[in-house]
Design a protein around this nucleic acid. Structure first.
Lengths: 157, 157
DNA sequence: CAATAACTCTACCCTAACGTTAGGGTAGAG
DNA sequence: CTCTACCCTAACGTTAGGGTAGAGTTATTG
């Protein structure tokens, strides 16, 4: 099991001031606090089929498990890679099915793997882009600071 | 002069297969190639008042100078910092006016400097965010690769 | 059993920064 | 002319949410 998304750590939750409706499920607000994602974002992820809450309350409140939260965390890590939500859904689907392991035709299995490999390559490429962006940003920030210092000189001298 | 945007390097341009309509101006396509920005993006920057081409041809083609290109390059470096186009316009306005140097009331001058300083602080903060994102991205990419390797094992063993 | 605070729901409109057509004009070579 | 390679405007589409309204739900307290 090398699941991208792992859950079932509900035990740990109890001890932490977590209001857990029934100790196993939590409402969207708590999930938002823990993932640092907005309510709107989390709902949006559901709208686009990225993360569906494991349950709903009688009154219709979304109820999430630790697994759901873990999945959201994965998505949060993916975000900087610039994937669209659709791509993320696609990738998570693939890894989910690979992890379900069980009985997959060798052919289907290979197809899934190839899909994941493609994303991995794209991810690597994006990491490179991020590096470039970071250095450009640093560069700019430096220029800006230099500009200020130099300008302060102009004023003082 | 520590201008954020510098131009007037038209000399260097001549030697480089640049079609320069009249040696001093170039059309949008060439600008796009040199800045690695899309035509749409460049036009959009004009729509929002970020970079106005220095001239137009008889027929209405946008004509850019080296200075314009330099300005676009600055913007490109700013992009990863997550500023909005409005903020960039604002900042470029400020630095432009500071560089025009000449006669600025000490008061106005200080106001401009403070504006720039604010952006500089925000830039620094964003650089930090970018670092976090980069590390999250690397992290994810690594996880994904590990996942694949591990999965290859599962298949082989 | 209210009442109430705190939270959540759906539905819908709004935004930024472009992408993407569609339909048409321009520059310059042959 | 006519071709080809560019360029133009106008306008709607897309992505990833933000914000708000109006109404319902849960948990708590008297």
């Amino acid at each position: 099991m090398a699941a991208l998304v792992r859950g079932e750590a509900a035990d740990e939750a109890k001890g932490q001031g977590i209001t857990g409706v029934d100790g196993k499920h939590m409402q969207i607000g708590e999930v938002a606090a823990r993932t640092e994602l907005s309510l709107r974002t989390i709902r949006h992820y559901e709208e686009t089929g990225l993360v569906t809450p494991s349950a709903r309350s009688q009154g219709g409140f979304r109820l999430y498990t630790e697994t759901d939260v873990a999945r959201l965390m994965v998505i949060r890590r993916m975000k900087p890679l610039g994937f669209t939500l659709d791509q993320m859904r696609d990738l998570l689907d693939a890894t989910d099915r690979l992890d379900a392991d069980a009985a997959l035709g060798a052919e289907e299995r290979e197809a899934l793997l190839e899909r994941v490999r493609t994303y991995q390559r794209e991810a690597a490429a994006q990491v490179e882009k991020l590096r470039v962006q970071l250095s450009r940003a640093e560069d700019f920030e430096g220029t800006l600071r230099a500009h200020l210092e130099q300008d302060a000189q102009a004023a003082g001298g």
